[in-house]
Design a protein around this nucleic acid. Structure first.
Length: 458
RNA sequence: GCCCCCAUCGUCUAGAGGCCUAGGACACGGCCCUUUCAAGGCCGAGACAGGGAUUCGAAUUCCCUUGGGGGCACCA
């Protein structure tokens, strides 16, 4: 039997880091096993589901490189859930519940007391005229529910901790636990890979499988991703959606690599492409400990993946990124951009670093992280005009010639080269860290270089 | 409150009774290279939560404690 897995996000927000990792593991497993990866939008919560979030989630999945073989939307399948719920109702495995919100509120924490199970046919008939009933599954109070989880082994829940939960709401839409099971059966899902927060839903779902007389798939509950404070990763930990990281200029390869590394291991190898991950992925690689989100590791991976890009590919990605940041005017001279990137490539962690660390290549409005102290400026004002003269005489403007010329100048004037070169760096870039100074000057060009040195003298 | 899950360096993890004086990666520290900041190279520090039990032998098995996390909706 071939593997069929699904990723089932609800469109109530943007694609979250943890959710994305669940998608990734499902996808990797499907691709590795030559199976089918199904994308199912769980939009039965009419209140909170938004089309724009669905669009955003699909977009982020594509960005990550996760494609799907089949696509479903639960809102298109409402009649199916109703039909199955009716079936369970007619078989006596489920019953109608006429309780109001207020009545249920009083039962909070105590569990549902089955008051509607005791209703007579006549009473139900009267109530039906007043309001639409919800449908609850009848869950036996005695015994226990056991199931096997691939990572956690045999898990056991006492049935008396499970309520007769609602499967169909009074508005005719299914609840999560119900639609999931109906769909997983209908879509012939073989392995359910999902977050550990669903472990406690599983016994409920198993009761539905049992009521329907269907065998359960294999469950694999993967650990959560936590914030630095070890609490479930949430908004207060900062950026938690894939889109935010994309906007920060992380490469999708880095994101995928990072997600795959959290809660799993692959023979000590760390930097891996999506293709390599498919190759080595196995359920046995999964860990059962929760993982803390560590952005330092993401930074490292992003840097590594940037280094692995060809200069052409990196240029393309940067053009795209700068467009998104409304800096397309930086990309007009593509060959210049490529030259800038060729010397920046080994020292940027994200595409955004092109803007942060390399703005001086593109604009005179570049940021100044450091300023030269006044006393030093006085000394420089004295020296710089002569340097300008010297540089003006450089005809073939390349790093080697520039270095020779400058070092000769330093020697003649008996300057401290560390001090002088660093001052020069600050004058032309406003930064204390740049690529090799002479390469930087070469790329920047004669005109801009001399212009900035002159400006630096005022 | 009830139910459930988890527990190795700061972080991600390797480890399925002797290969463990516990391995790797990130981060961190130091040194080297360099009459430029970086980058790069080399080296280093750093963990089996605690207590019992089983065993000739336990990071690895079992129990308890502690700690952390998750779930208990006509949300998903």
């Amino acid at each position: 039997m071939s593997v069929r897995v699904r990723f089932a996000p609800s469109p109530t927000g943007h694609l979250h880091i943890g959710t994305a990792r669940t998608a990734l593991f499902n996808w990797l497993f499907a691709r590795k096993e030559k199976g089918t990866f199904i994308l199912r939008i769980e939009d039965t919560d009419l209140e909170r589901s938004k089309k724009e979030f669905e669009v955003s989630i699909l977009d982020d999945l594509r960005w990550l490189g996760l494609d799907w073989d089949e696509f479903y939307r639960q809102s298109d399948r409402l009649s199916i859930y109703r039909e199955i719920a009716e079936k369970l109702l007619s078989e006596g495995k489920a019953y109608e519940c006429f309780c109001t919100k207020e009545e249920l509120e009083k039962l909070r924490g105590k569990g549902y007391d089955r008051r509607c199970l005791k209703l007579s046919e006549a009473e139900k008939e009267t109530l039906r005229k007043e309001r639409k009933p919800a449908i609850r599954l009848y869950v036996p109070k005695d015994g226990e529910t056991r199931f096997n989880d691939y990572l956690h082994g045999e898990l056991c829940f006492q049935n008396n901790v499970i309520d007769d939960f609602v499967i169909l709401k009074s508005d005719g839409t299914p609840t999560y636990n119900f639609s999931v099971v109906v769909d997983d059966i209908d879509m012939r899902i073989t392995h359910i890979i999902r977050g550990e927060d669903h472990i406690s839903n599983t016994p409920k779902q198993i009761h539905i499988y049992n009521a329907l007389g269907i065998e359960t798939p294999i469950f694999i509950h993967i650990p959560m991703i936590l914030g630095q404070d070890k609490a479930k990763l949430s908004k207060r930990h900062g950026a938690t959606s894939i889109g935010e990281y994309r906007s920060m200029g992380y490469l999708s390869e880095a994101m995928v690599n990072f997600l795959a590394l959290m809660g799993a291991s692959y023979n000590d190898k760390q930097v891996l492409s999506l293709e390599e991950l498919v190759e080595i992925f196995s359920l046995e690689n999964l860990s059962k400990n929760p993982a803390i989100f560590d952005i330092k590791k993401l930074d490292f991976l992003s840097q590594e993946h940037i280094r692995r890009k060809s200069i052409e590919a990196l240029t393309q990605l940067t053009i795209q990124f700068l467009k998104e940041k409304r800096l397309e005017h930086w990309t007009i001279d593509k060959s210049y951009l490529t030259r800038v990137l060729s010397i920046l490539q080994t020292r940027i962690k994200t595409l955004k670093d092109v803007i942060i660390m390399g703005d001086y290549f593109f604009t005179e409005e570049f940021s100044r992280d450091v300023e030269i102290p006044i006393e030093e400026k006085k000394r420089l004002n004295y020296i710089l005009p002569e340097l300008v003269d010297a540089l003006n005489k450089v005809d073939d403007w390349n790093a080697t010639n520039l270095e020779n010329k400058t070092r000769t100048f330093i020697a003649e004037k008996m300057l401290d080269s560390r001090w002088f070169l660093q001052s020069l760096r600050i004058i032309i870039s406003g930064k204390k860290v740049t690529p090799s100074l002479f390469e930087t000057l070469e790329v920047l060009g004669k005109e801009k270089t001399i212009d900035r040195i002159k400006k630096g003298m005022d």
